[in-house]
């Protein structure tokens, strides 16, 4: 029988996976302090459950699965603290008149092709994306991260964050409109 210690070596966790786990957490939490906290929790849980590790997955996949659970836990807790508040962001559509619901003047999508034709700098895009994510209202961010970034089932996302099967699309819609506009302002206009 294989001994767990052959498959797992905690002494190498930081050097082998530290940056990967941290980067993953940071991109979803927009905060170095919270990312670091979740990494600590991840390692503590991993050390506790080491005996149950059967080597069905790699050590790396196993650590990531623990971190992913910590991210869900974090957003469940933050969602109970935060109501879906009226965010300051105003949807980019006309609010009345004959063209109600149409793109508001100057707030429709600009042409990105100039920026997209050249090499898209992945790192630059990620940096702007993270900055824009950080600006989302907490509850919108929770739904966006769990549904779009973590690709979790709709029912489960709603259970964790308290959204409903119908308003989840409205939340994601608002989050996406805000993100798109923020990216356009910060990336395309440069």
């Amino acid at each position: 029988m294989t001994n767990n210690t052959d498959l797992i070596n905690p002494k190498l966790w930081i050097s082998n996976y530290g940056d990967l786990l941290y980067n993953y957490a940071y991109s979803r939490l927009s905060s170095s302090t919270i990312a670091e906290d979740l990494l600590q929790d991840t390692f503590v849980s991993a050390l506790k459950s080491m005996e149950n590790f059967r080597g069905d997955s790699t050590e790396k996949t196993w650590l990531f699965s623990i971190l992913k659970r910590k991210i869900i836990d974090y957003y469940r807790k933050s969602s109970t603290r935060n109501e879906i508040s009226e965010s300051k962001y105003k949807n980019p559509f006309k609010e009345d008149g004959f063209f109600e619901g149409h793109w508001d003047n100057n707030r429709g999508p600009s042409n990105w092709s100039n920026a997209a034709d050249g090499q898209i700098h992945q790192n630059e895009f990620q940096a702007i994306m993270e900055m824009c994510l950080a600006l989302l209202p907490e509850k919108h961010k929770a739904v966006f991260v769990l549904k779009v970034m973590e690709d979790i089932e709709t029912n489960k996302v709603c259970k964790e964050t308290g959204c409903t099967a119908s308003n989840i699309w409205v939340i994601l819609h608002r989050a996406r409109l805000q993100l798109r506009e923020c990216i356009e302002k910060n990336w395309i206009d440069e």
Partner: peptide, 28 residues
């Protein structure tokens, strides 16, 4: 345009959600 840009954003998100081949930006 929104449709195109939206799918572009999703592609980028999937790229940096990939744990096997990450583009690491933040280091400890």
């Amino acid at each position: 345009r929104f449709e195109e840009q939206s799918s572009e954003i999703s592609t980028h998100i999937k790229d940096f959600s990939n744990i096997e081949n990450p583009k690491t930006l933040h280091n400890l």
